[in-house]
């Protein structure tokens, strides 16, 4: 039964990738071997690996959303964020590592969208690990060529008069989008605003939308 997948869906609604209960693969064997060799040679420890996994698991689009919501509320912060997103993120207390971050502001006149045509560079410290489609051949190939069509497949239909700027990331330079603040959100708190900022709105494949009242 092709649709009978409910037994294999995680709380987030996504299927688990085959893991502990499937036959050991060659590459899993290599992962175990590499990890154990690194521990035996005192290059790392099991604890350090677990701590790193926890740190990555703790990263989610909520971090980027907090930056965006503050930028919406605090013009001075927005200026800082646009001038030096790495410094502004650190000032908010976020560990962004050595990444050079660049914030792109969506306006009524320009829509920005982010891609990595060469690989999968992504502002992972702000948004968590990238979605599978971000790493796909289809997204990497087509976004620079037909961004308007790609956006419409994500449900974002922009007027033909609206310029779209496509930003191709590199390993050392990672972009994220400050989406437009939705209309009708003047009375919302910064936290409530942050809840409107989706992952896709910060990649540029979505927009932030006001809550339905």
């Amino acid at each position: 039964m092709p649709h009978d997948h409910h037994d294999h869906v995680s709380p987030s609604g996504h299927p688990y990738r085959a893991d502990d209960d499937t036959p050991l693969s060659y590459w899993q064997t290599m992962e175990i071997a590499v990890r154990e060799l690194l521990v035996e040679k005192d290059i790392t420890t099991a604890e350090e690996i677990n701590t790193q996994i926890d740190a990555m698991d703790a990263r989610s689009p909520a971090i980027g959303a907090a930056l965006v919501a503050r930028a919406w509320c605090d013009p001075e912060f927005k200026t800082q964020l646009l001038a030096d997103a790495s410094a502004a993120s650190r000032e908010m207390g976020f560990d962004i590592g050595p990444m050079h971050l660049i914030a792109l502001e969506n306006t009524a006149d320009t829509h920005n969208i982010v891609v990595c045509t060469l690989c999968s560079c992504y502002p992972r410290n702000l948004l968590g690990l990238p979605p599978d489609w971000y790493k796909s051949r289809a997204y990497r190939s087509r976004t620079v060529k037909e961004p308007r069509k790609v956006l419409s497949e994500f449900g974002v239909n922009l007027p033909n008069s609206m310029p779209i700027r496509v930003h191709d990331s590199t390993a050392d330079m990672r972009y994220f989008v400050i989406p437009m603040r939705p209309d009708g959100t003047e009375d919302l708190s910064q936290d409530a605003l942050a809840a409107l900022v989706t992952r896709d709105s910060m990649i540029g494949t979505g927009i932030a939308t006001a809550p339905i009242t």
């Binding site: 893991d19 502990d20 060469l118 690990l129 489609w133 051949r137 289809a138 087509r142 976004t143």
Partner: peptide, 19 residues
Amino acid sequence: MGGQDAGPISDDQHDFSLW
């Protein structure tokens, strides 16, 4: 790959496993 022809973008998504 930038600019090459390719098919539709799949929205399949999986959670990362421990390994």
